[in-house]
Design a protein around this nucleic acid. Structure first.
Length: 355
DNA sequence: CAGCCGTGGGC
DNA sequence: TGCCCAAGGCT
């Protein structure tokens, strides 16, 4: 045992969870679904319903966008029982504009499952949470850690980035998942919830995608990315796919009494079960409008919108009259907040001066 | 398991 | 302006 351990410079560094927690004790952000570390130290624990709701909303979505939706949901539905008792259509109306609408459908299904299978009390373990709709590896671990200090690795996009830099990983994050998970798991302290939130906050505020504030980072002393002098080189970006452009037409039917005709989209695919303005199919090639009925159709504008995997350009047409289509209903122009209208169709209406 | 699934803000 | 990005999950 005479030989000392190899130099730290050649060893994969380990996460100093005490330094991370010390940083979090000073810099934890105040969020409506969060219990401050000082209060947690006194035994306070967050409401699993609020943590779950916030985690679903925060999937691929910024805190700034989530805030007002979280406030609206918790005001309308203070408990999981209240949410489970609501009609799905009401939930979709409240979710409209937040995107990734499968989350809202799964949210509602999950609330009902918690009521039916667990008598309205969220299960506490990550393994049980993982079986509920809309709750995957990340969200199950996050809820269990934050609410119950289960010592599980909570790995989201922020943590992937922090670890990619900390270990100067040369392969794409997707290929390093097992290593990242193991490295985080090995560092999880008793204060698992604070640690999970700390690592994510670190990624969001210090070790950000286009900026690394290494001077402020509690992991900097051991960080291989910082030592390399170019931490932003990590993680190596995945190959980006081309986004095709699609074209279509939207047909606004404007009733004399200040209403517009809307209908519900199909149960599957893009914007499933949401409310839409009628229109043509969206295709790669531009096509002449096929109006749903003969009328004085006027071009009133154009809308561009980018979805996750394609760009869309819509020509907007309007006709005045009380001519309904087969399926759908008249929506009061002054009550559009009561409709589950995705942002795309709010843009369509705005192009016609309706909002 | 790679593709699908929204949106608004920052640069 | 156009591109990148954000606390993922489902199939």
């Amino acid at each position: 045992m005479a030989q000392s351990a190899p130099s730290q410079h050649t060893l994969a560094p380990t996460i100093d969870s005490r330094a991370v927690l010390a940083w979090y004790d000073r810099h934890a952000r105040d969020l409506p679904w969060r219990v401050a570390p000082a209060d947690r130290a006194r035994g306070a624990r967050p409401d699993p319903y609020r943590v779950w709701l916030s985690e679903i909303m925060l999937q691929q979505t910024t805190i700034a966008a989530v805030r007002k939706y979280f406030a609206a949901f918790t005001t309308l539905w203070p408990t999981v029982r209240d949410l489970a008792a609501a009609p799905l259509d009401d939930v979709l109306v409240q979710w409209a504009g937040l995107g990734y609408y499968a989350r809202a459908r799964n949210l509602h299904a999950c609330a009902r499952a918690v009521v039916e299978r667990f008598d309205g009390v969220f299960p506490t373990s990550a393994a049980q949470l993982r079986d509920l709709p809309g709750i995957g590896d990340y969200t199950s671990a996050a809820i269990a850690a934050i609410c119950h200090d289960e010592q599980v690795a909570v790995v989201d996009g922020n943590v992937d980035r922090v670890l990619a830099r900390f270990r100067a990983l040369e392969k794409a994050v997707r290929e390093e998942k097992p290593l990242i998970r193991a490295a985080v798991q090995a560092a999880v302290p008793a204060r698992a919830g604070d640690f999970a939130q700390a690592m994510m906050d670190l990624g969001a505020t210090i070790c950000a995608p286009r900026r690394a504030n290494c001077l402020l980072c509690p992991l900097e002393p051991d960080c291989l990315g910082a030592r390399s002098g170019h931490p932003l080189a990590y993680p190596v970006p995945p190959a980006k796919a081309e986004k095709p452009r699609r074209h279509g037409h939207a047909f606004i039917i404007r009733h004399p009494e200040g209403k517009v005709f809307v209908r519900q989209r199909g149960p599957k695919g893009l914007l499933a079960k949401m409310t839409e303005i009628p229109g043509s199919p969206w295709q790669e090639d531009e096509a002449e409008p096929a109006f749903p009925f003969a009328a004085d159709w006027r071009a009133v504008g154009a809308v561009t919108h980018t979805f996750t995997h394609f760009h869309l350009a819509l020509s907007v047409w309007m006709a005045r009259g009380d001519h309904p289509l087969d399926e759908g209903w008249w929506a009061d122009e002054t009550r559009l907040d009561n409709e589950a209208l995705p942002s795309l169709f709010r843009k369509v209406l705005a192009a016609a001066g309706i909002s």
